Simulated scan of single mutants.
Amino acid sequence: MLPSQIFCLWKNAKSFLKNTQTPKTPCVICFNLFCRNARLKVSDIDFDRMTIYIRDTKYSKNRIVPLSKTMKVGLEKYLKHVRPKLWLFEGYDTSKHMATNSIGSLFRETLKKTNIKKRVTIHTLRHTYATHCIEMGMDPFTLKELLGHEALQTTMLYLNLATVKKSNSFSPFDKIYATKN
């Protein structure tokens, strides 16, 4: 997708998340930006430190990501409403986590309620999130860790999609020689 299309999709995400019937849907979708499955335990959320512990990832690499203030508010509503015991997002069998294909189904059902007409997958939101992080000035090394990428080259693909503001660009000569004058 072009950067303008990605921006349009992200802008529509607000209406997308408003079209949900329970607090579970926006939480599942937002958490899927960081991890591709719903294997998060209630104990993986640390509200005091504002972090999320992500385990058992694609590359079997555990990591800690920040919990945004906005996600915290939504998550607190979800926890108050649903009261999960072990898994943050329980499946039909509450002793198991929500299945990955259930996340996709939930996403597709919610997407039908929006005005978004282009073909979008849950992974498109992950790409959108990463692209906006780059556009907002996050360095690729931090984004690599946040997304749990094994190789920096995977993260660098988002640089091709990102539109970096000219105000963020500079000539290294200006920085190098500014200290000598």
Rank of each mutant, 00 (worst) to 15 (best):
N115Q: 09
H81L: 02
R126T: 02
T100Y: 14
N19Y: 13
K41Y: 08
R39P: 01
I6T: 11
A130I: 07
T131P: 05
T22Y: 11
I64F: 03
L40M: 14
Y129V: 00
K14C: 10
A151D: 13
K77G: 03
K24Y: 01
T100D: 13
D93G: 11
L161E: 03
S43C: 12
L161Q: 14
R108W: 00
R119T: 11
S169G: 00
L88P: 05
H97C: 12
A38R: 06
F31C: 15
L67N: 04
K80N: 10
G148P: 01
G137R: 03
T20K: 09
T121D: 08
L33N: 09
Y92I: 11
D48L: 07
A99P: 00
T51I: 05
D56G: 12
T121V: 03
N181T: 14
N101S: 13
L9D: 09
E150F: 00
K18P: 05
L2K: 15
T155G: 09
K14F: 14
G91E: 03
T57H: 01
F16E: 11
H97D: 08
I116W: 06
I29L: 14
T114L: 07
K24S: 12
T131E: 06
Y158N: 04
D44Q: 09
S68W: 00
D44T: 05
Q5C: 03
A130D: 02
S43Q: 13
K96S: 07
E109I: 05
V120F: 04
L147G: 01
S15V: 07
K117G: 02
H132N: 11
L161R: 07
P3S: 12
Y158G: 07
T51E: 07
K80A: 12
H123W: 06
L79Q: 02
C27L: 05
R55N: 04
K18Y: 10
E145Y: 03
L33V: 12
V65M: 14
N19K: 15
F89D: 04
F141A: 05
K180A: 15
L159I: 12
M136D: 01
K18I: 12
P66T: 09
G104L: 13
F16D: 08
A162M: 06
G91L: 07
D46K: 01
L159S: 13
A13K: 15
M138Y: 12
R36P: 00
N160Y: 03
L159R: 06
P172R: 00
H127R: 10
K58M: 05
